[in-house]
Amino acid sequence: MSKAERPGGREPVRLAVRKTYKLYIGGAFPRSESGRSYVVTSSKGEFLANASKASRKDARDAVSAARKAFGGWSGATPYNRGQILYRVAEMLESRRAQFVAELTDAGTRKAGEVVDAAVDRLVWYAGWADKIAAVAGSTNPVAGPYFNVSSPEPTGVVAVVAPDEPLLGLVSVIAPVIVTGNTCVVIAGERAPLPAITLAEVLATSDLPGGVVNILTGSVKEIAPWLAAHMDVNAIDLTGVTDPDLAVACEEGAAENLKRVLRPAATDWSADPGTKRLTVFLETKTVWHPTGV
């Protein structure tokens, strides 16, 4: 709490207008339909906010929004997607101070450097939008009079369990998923979800179509299995699942409709990310056509 909020202070009293941290679904900021919230505290244990505690219904709404956004986003030109991701980086940079404050509250050390790294990560992925197809695609020299070409395509709706690295980790799992044309439903890290909602505000002001990224806050253990078993979700990134039993349950649920699964793995978010997170949520489509006159 800032000084100005304290009653009885010597300064003229002006009560700060606090932000209600809500969910981000389909480009809007609804509260959880369940009406639930949970207390988020700083690393020192001070009250920060009541975050929305998303329900199964919220998760389903988010999947619907992501599915609805998929056609337009995957059909946008890669150049356009790259521009929008770069715009996200710009917006993030312009809110640097706010993220530094939130990360500091969450106990992140050298928060300024972390925010810078998150901005740079977005820029790095933005540049991949119109390059990944050239790297992951191929023309195939088949033994016959056919033109044959393979190109990567987004797999569809991806559920993402974000790691407990409130900004850099979050950006590092969202950007590679959406830059190739997927849409996603993200469960923010449970302990420090506030930067995720502030990131949603950045996304909402970056020309990113509503529904491309949907962010839920709440209990990972409660929501992740619903997303893992959801029949209209094409893939799931379990990076942020720390409980091995939960990871197994999610992977088993994912088998129901043969989701692509990225298993949890310890990750150094400051390291060069490589292309794995880009390619794991891509399909390869191969087109044949006869040649001739």
Partner: peptide, 11 residues
């Protein structure tokens, strides 16, 4: 053809 990737989407 052996040079041509084969495999599915979805289920």
């Amino acid at each position: 053809d052996p040079t041509s990737p084969f495999g599915g989407y979805k289920e």
